[in-house]
């Protein structure tokens, strides 16, 4: 079961390994970078860099149809790009797992991140996605583990919102 290590991204990686998630797609977000790096070093995990998050939904569903489990990593803005695509795992009852690094909530510097940050849980729920949330580092592994099992055991879509509290809000400096 899920462990707690020094960096919570290690805990997510451990869940991927335990649950045989062998494809990870993403449009990068700084909050996911350590996890993306871990996956890239692993020959058993294929990392696919997308041009838009919605493609990760179709990619993930196609991979599942071929017997491969995957996860989509994105920042909260990316959720907005995915809404219509989320109909695919929903209507096909394909297990779909996404991990969302939150912006626009905890001490955010960039006002442009706020609208989609506020909208993220609402639009996911509007699309019948089961939304999990991790606010503290020591609950990340168990939350991702629970969400992944929920998705793959019940053939539903699950999202884990990874709080900006854990990622930290970069305070931009001009110049």
């Amino acid at each position: 079961m899920a462990e707690v290590t020094k960096d919570w991204r290690n805990d997510i990686y451990a869940v991927f390994k335990e649950l045989n998630i062998t494809m990870v797609s993403h449009v990068p977000d700084a909050g996911h970078t350590p996890l993306i790096n871990l996956c890239e070093k692993d020959n058993e995990i294929e990392v696919v860099t997308l041009t838009t998050e919605q493609d990760g939904v179709g990619l993930s569903c196609g991979a599942y149809a071929g017997g491969k489990r995957s996860a989509l990593l994105m920042q909260s803005s990316g959720v907005g790009n995915c809404i219509n695509a989320l109909a695919l795992p929903n209507i096909c009852r394909i297990p779909f797992l996404t991990l969302v690094s939150m912006r626009g909530e905890w001490g955010e510097f960039v006002p442009w991140q706020v609208p989609m940050g506020l909208g993220t849980p609402k639009v996911l729920e509007a699309m019948d996605i089961k939304v999990f949330r991790a606010d503290y580092k020591d609950e990340v592994g168990s939350t991702v583990d629970a969400a992944a099992r929920f998705a793959f055991n019940t053939n539903r879509s699950a999202a884990v919102l990874l709080s900006q509290k854990m990622i930290g809000a970069k305070q931009f400096k001009n110049g």
């Binding site: 494809m23 179709g58 569903c61």
Partner: peptide, 14 residues
């Protein structure tokens, strides 16, 4: 818009 990425995922897995 999802058929192309779906086909990619399927081709990778199979």
């Amino acid at each position: 818009g999802q058929s192309i990425p779906f086909a990619l995922g399927l081709a990778k897995a199979k």
